[in-house]
Design a protein around this nucleic acid. Sequence first.
DNA 1: TACGATTCGTGTATTTATACACATTTTCAT
DNA 2: ATGAAAATGTGTATAAATACACGAATCGTA
Lengths: 185, 185
Amino acid sequence: MILVMTKVDRRIIKTQEGIKNAFTELMSEKNLDEITMQDISDRANVGRRTIYLHYLDKYDLLDKLIEEHINELRILCQSASELSYTEGNLIWFEYFERNYTFFSTMLTSKGAPLFRSRFLDFVIEELKSDVNVTEGKNQGLSKDLILKFFGAAIVEIVEAWFNNGLSEPTEVVAEQVGILLDRNL
Amino acid sequence: MILVMTKVDRRIIKTQEGIKNAFTELMSEKNLDEITMQDISDRANVGRRTIYLHYLDKYDLLDKLIEEHINELRILCQSASELSYTEGNLIWFEYFERNYTFFSTMLTSKGAPLFRSRFLDFVIEELKSDVNVTEGKNQGLSKDLILKFFGAAIVEIVEAWFNNGLSEPTEVVAEQVGILLDRNL
DNA sequence: TACGATTCGTGTATTTATACACATTTTCAT
DNA sequence: ATGAAAATGTGTATAAATACACGAATCGTA
């Protein structure tokens, strides 16, 4: 993370935004293999050449897109680090809701199974600082085991939530997951 | 109208589109005088300097915007010139519906009373070729009088339609106005 | 398998949009 | 009225996006 955030040219932001949105849309319509650079440039209303100014290929684009969302979540975690899980989760789940197309595509479709493990890694990473096995209720347990246990649990719930089309209200899911985490960590 | 339509740079189209949309939105929110160039560039997500590459000022922008819509309608008239009014009107009113924000703003708000007369002029212009005072039902009547008579009538209906929030279905209004015109011209 | 069409990745010259700075004018609250 | 803040219009250097063209790779299909 660069500290001195030099102002990014407005054109870069608009172009990348357009490309990422176009790509996310296309991902919800077809498999990654079926998406061509041509498709992306058409949808984004951008010259095909322009895409190569920002990304190596569609895989690089997908990578960067995932990395960006993970990073957004990372920032949210920091800002919510003082809250309980019950409270902080709401912020999390609201981010999922705001970026429905992306997460829905990534978690539900066969399109990108690579995302799940990436996402799980991240969740575990974030839980690390909260798990204490030297004292408290988890004293004596394996930290690694606990992290995998609850990491997978969280990912599963998020996945199921999207698979059900977000039928449960955000607040309810966020709160219940929060209760379980607050009780255990 | 330039015949050899040289391909316009994609950036120009996107920029102008953005500016015009931003401006149309702003027009529906405040008076023309209250809109600043800064507002427009902010809303359009475009550098303030960029606007001056395309327009002299906000009045020029409004002019060009109006002229463009009138011209779109002119093209629609040409393509519908073989149809009866009952049929052709539907195309017209559908265009109004598609560009709701613009026409609604222009016809209903106090913002731009200049548009009404501009619009009326155009309608009369388009009716000209259809009015025959040397034979038929209007034989002996003043062509100028007929044009003003039915021109104002049409404009009034369109205006009222927008003032009522398009509560009447498009097809109904289009058909009824069509019947009246088919009967009289 | 062969072949025609599509996509790809890239080089290049050019056009467009941008950031930034400046003096000037307008707006508006005190 | 007046003074600070905002908006204006413009010059300039630079960065980004574009159009276009090209040979190579890939794909679909006959």
